[in-house]
């Protein structure tokens, strides 16, 4: 899922400026599950804004990133000066595209593609590199989970299973080593992985996907 974290309220207030009629718009998908921008958080923020004398209302749609889910917002948007979107950056842009006359502000910082690893803790798992090679590493992605995206083994700073860069995080290469050892496939690590082709990734420019059979 897409993980996002709420911006500090202070920053949000700065974004809004002197606009008074605000719609706080939650999203019912990823950011609901990671407890950052769902109905609950939208209600809380709207409440806070009302205490601060804004005319804030809140509403939450199933998915802000899909035009068909935001279309029904037309009449609500007519009544406000700005929208504070609690969706990920995709949702914010979908709204901004649909309502070009209304300022849309991001209430979250979209941070990563990840998963909950325990109650209250989420971690990054995939960097969307466009050419998945995670099978080569026993199902642990070094592109994303190694701070240096090393494809040929751990750096010289891995210690006690933790990453030298972020000591509260696992070293991806320790995980890879342990998993492949468990599977009796350590020889896979002896193979030299060639430089990755980054052209299908964000480095190749922004991306698109087409399904000919689905085009109208």
């Amino acid at each position: 899922m897409i993980i996002g974290e709420r911006k500090p309220v202070k920053e949000i207030l700065q974004l809004i400026g002197d606009r008074k009629k605000i719609l706080v718009l939650g999203c019912g998908t990823c950011v609901t599950v990671c407890l950052s921008g769902g109905e609950k958080e939208a209600k809380e923020l709207a409440s806070l804004l009302r205490i601060k004398k804004y005319q804030a209302s809140d509403y939450t749609v199933e998915r802000q990133c899909e035009p068909e889910f935001i279309r029904p917002l037309d009449y609500r948007l007519k009544e406000v000066e700005a929208v504070l979107s609690l969706a990920c950056g995709v949702g914010v842009q979908a709204l901004a595209d649909r309502y070009p006359r209304t300022p849309v502000f991001p209430g979250l910082n979209t941070t990563f593609l990840g998963m909950p690893v325990e109650q209250g803790r989420w971690e990054e798992r995939c960097g969307g590199c466009g050419q998945c090679i995670v099978h080569l590493f026993g199902g642990t992605c070094p592109v994303t989970r190694c701070a240096k995206s090393l494809l040929n083994g751990p750096c010289g700073g891995s210690k006690d299973g933790k990453c030298e860069v972020k000591p509260d995080r696992d070293c991806a290469w320790q995980l890879i080593y342990d998993r492949l050892k468990l599977q009796g496939r350590l020889d896979a690590l002896l193979e030299i992985q060639p430089p990755k082709d980054w052209s299908p990734s964000r480095h190749g420019g922004h991306r698109k996907m087409i399904r000919e059979d689905m085009l109208l």
């Binding site: 083994g153 751990p154 700073g157 891995s158 210690k159 299973g161 290469w173 320790q174 080593y177 690590l189």
Partner: peptide, 8 residues
């Protein structure tokens, strides 16, 4: 030679 995993 001193970093983990040592065996690797």
């Amino acid at each position: 030679p001193f970093a983990d995993p040592l065996e690797f």
